[in-house]
């Protein structure tokens, strides 16, 4: 685990302009280590707030992910995850409230059903199952958020780039 010393949490960096420039600056370094593209789906009430806690508490973690906030993890249907893979994501993390804590009472139970379906399809496609992960992170668990992100980033990095990444895309 090598947490990079970035001060801001990645979700706070303005989109597009800065992220586009970054690889050009970092190119001499980026050539020897490959960084994965990870998509994190987080529910509004727990996981996203957990990421926020990690941010305001200045807990360091790896920044190679883009976060997409949804109201409830139950909303994260297979289409979301599969489209992320289709567009070139190397890993997808689905996160929501712990059981019993769901803001919508049983939304995370639906999330499990949707996740199982997604996993079945990902398995059929021949993509490594380790590229897909489901985690429960509460609003107070900033430390846990950082830990999950670091673990997952390392896990995906070890697998290398997704073989389903469209060919026109590089880096």
């Amino acid at each position: 685990m090598t947490p990079t010393s970035q001060k801001k949490t990645p979700k706070r960096t303005p989109p597009n302009k800065k992220t586009k420039k970054a690889p050009a600056k970092a190119s001499p370094k980026a050539s020897d280590t490959w960084d994965p593209n990870i998509v994190v789906f987080a529910c509004n009430w727990c996981s996203y707030a957990g990421a926020d806690t990690a941010g305001v508490s200045r807990i360091q973690h790896q920044p190679h992910f883009r976060m997409i906030r949804v109201m409830c993890s139950g909303r994260i249907q297979p289409g979301f995850v599969l489209r992320a893979f289709e567009k070139g994501a190397d890993g997808v993390l689905v996160s929501g409230c712990h059981f019993g804590d769901c803001h919508y009472i049983f939304g995370n139970e639906r999330a499990v059903e949707q996740f199982e379906k997604t996993k079945n399809v990902v398995r059929l496609l021949g993509l490594e199952e380790e590229r897909l992960r489901l985690e429960w992170i509460s609003a107070a668990e900033g430390v846990r958020f950082a830990k999950v992100i670091n673990e997952f980033t390392d896990q995906v990095r070890a697998l290398g780039p997704s073989r389903l990444r469209p060919k026109r895309q590089t880096g």
Binding site: Q77, P78, G79, F80, L82, R83, F85, E86, T118, V121, R123, L124, L125, G126, L127, R163, L164, R165, P166, K167
Partner: peptide
Amino acid sequence: CPHGGALHSVMRMMATGGTQQDR
């Protein structure tokens, strides 16, 4: 798509190829 485009994504990934399906 009523399934959130999931099946179309699957088809496009098959078109891209690169993996060995477990079909």
